[in-house]
């Protein structure tokens, strides 16, 4: 049995809603940074949305970018400070809607950074509007009759956009169970190992519950991810040129 202590980067209680997956993802990210002894060197690039609530609670150097531009900021930081682990932490609205271009081009250039993209299929901070990742028929405050894919497109699968690029590491996990959480932790570790060995762009997309804006109880939110969301966004490792942790 090993000790399970709160990792050092979690310097304050998080500010997320009850049942929000960000809290779990924050913790496993902080664990990986501690275990790899990267907490003191890491520089995070965040933009807007619920992710920016971490700026006071997650104790690494942070730079806050304009909406969507976190990967461009991370590019500037990493080119200047190649020895430091540089990561982005963004939601799906931020990284895949307004920041689609910056997200994709960082991958396209194979920037040696790690992207943590948290996909809850909705704009959380702004109050539950439809995102590019929302599911067909999903009711949100801007798709009150359910998402009409004829008019708004199919759910955006960012991994399908990236998997044929020349990048280092690409994986998708979820935080719905102990098994899945442990798997995501390995993915995040693989991503940072890829970066620290100079292996190029690494990205982990994490399916995460937003009980508040899904208007669903937390336990039902986890079931919804397992039963429905993963049929659109299958879990697994898609590109693995770096990282040592095997499942």
């Amino acid at each position: 049995m090993v000790e399970r202590l709160i990792p050092t980067a979690l310097v304050e209680d998080n500010k997320f809603c009850p049942g929000c997956g960000h809290g779990i993802i924050n913790r496993i990210l902080a664990e990986v940074l501690d275990e790899m002894k990267l907490t003191d060197k890491a520089i995070g690039s965040m933009a807007v949305g619920c992710a920016c609530l971490m700026v006071d609670t997650f104790g690494v150097d942070w730079i806050q970018s304009p909406h969507g531009r976190a990967a461009a900021l991370a590019t500037g930081i990493k080119r200047c400070r190649p020895e430091n682990p540089v990561f982005t932490y963004q939601g799906d609205g931020d990284s895949m809607s307004i920041g689609f271009s910056e997200t994709m081009y960082a991958a396209f250039r194979n920037e040696n950074i790690t992207a943590i993209l948290v996909n809850n299929g909705i704009f959380g901070m702004t109050g539950g509007q439809m995102a590019p990742t929302s599911l067909p028929g999903q009711k949100t405050v801007t798709s009150p009759m359910g998402r009409n894919t004829d008019l708004t497109g199919q759910p955006l699968n960012i991994i399908n956009q990236m998997k044929d690029l020349n990048i280092g590491y690409l994986a998708r996990g979820s935080v719905t169970s102990i098994k899945n959480i442990n798997r995501v932790k390995k993915y995040i570790r693989n991503a940072f190992e890829t970066q620290m060995s100079g292996g190029g762009y690494s990205m982990v997309e994490i399916l995460s519950p937003c009980p508040t804006n899904w208007k669903m109880m937390p336990d039902k939110s986890l079931e919804h991810i397992d039963n429905t969301v993963t049929t659109y966004y299958p879990l697994g490792e898609y590109v693995k040129k770096g990282g040592d942790s095997n499942e």
Binding site: M1, V2, E3, R4, L5, I6, L10, D13, N14, F16, G19, C20, G21, H22, G23, I24, R27, S177, I178, I181, N182
Partner: peptide, 18 residues
């Protein structure tokens, strides 16, 4: 003291100490 609660908890309510 298996730590399952630590792993699933989004709010750092649980710690396991040896």
């Amino acid at each position: 003291g298996c730590g399952s609660c630590y792993t699933i908890c989004p709010d750092y309510v649980f710690e396991i100490k040896e």
